[in-house]
Amino acid sequence: MIDNTLNRRQFLKSSVGVAAVAVAPGILLYGMANGSSEGASAKVRWGMLIDTSHCAEGCNDCVTACNKENGLSGGVAATDSQWIRKIEIKEIAGGRQLSLPMMCQHCENPPCVDVCPTTASFKRADGIVLVDKHRCIGCRYCMMACPYKARSFVHEALHDQNPDVPRGKGTVESCTMCVHRVDQGLQPACADACANKAILFGNLNDPDSEIAKKIRTVASVQVRADLRLNPGVRYQGL
């Protein structure tokens, strides 16, 4: 573990945002990918831990925040984009009920990236799975391949996009883990918006991060873990 810390220090020394980093470990966590001229680092793996026991049924705050941040219409027609959605589930045996948000799970081995003919779907070094819309030809094969139905296709021309979140007709899109915020050292809009703190965002690779500590101490699962995709989003209490 000491080695690990040393390595991280060394790495940080070489990057630009060093000055801001030494202040507190919490900031350091985000500082790594923030505005650095080296870009996303493979030493980071961004992830989320969702505590379903804190996720209130009927609460839609994360969805609303995502829509606002990323400029989605908020419509729920079959042709509307939904980057994050609330799912209400009920266990058939016993009837236990849960509510949870579902979005791109940012897999380590993402099927969408495997199937994309043009490498438009790709995984950043820090584990965030994105669609490069400059390359997307709109074939929708990734939507067929995603086990979480996390992706949407833009069915209509769009106007008035967020300058930080380009989106456009004829391409596929999904949760970006608010990459434009994460690169600034902020956390994703959904995590920010959750009043119950059910969404914990952080660096899974940093043993001292809050998320890594919690994953070590509480039981959490990956959805469709049988597929061995190793998603970066984990669920607690499922």
Binding site: V16, G35, S36, G39, A40, R124, D126, D132, D183
Partner: peptide, 9 residues
């Protein structure tokens, strides 16, 4: 570089 490597500077 920005899109794929996250270089924002």
């Amino acid at each position: 570089e920005t899109m794929r490597q996250g270089v924002r500077t």
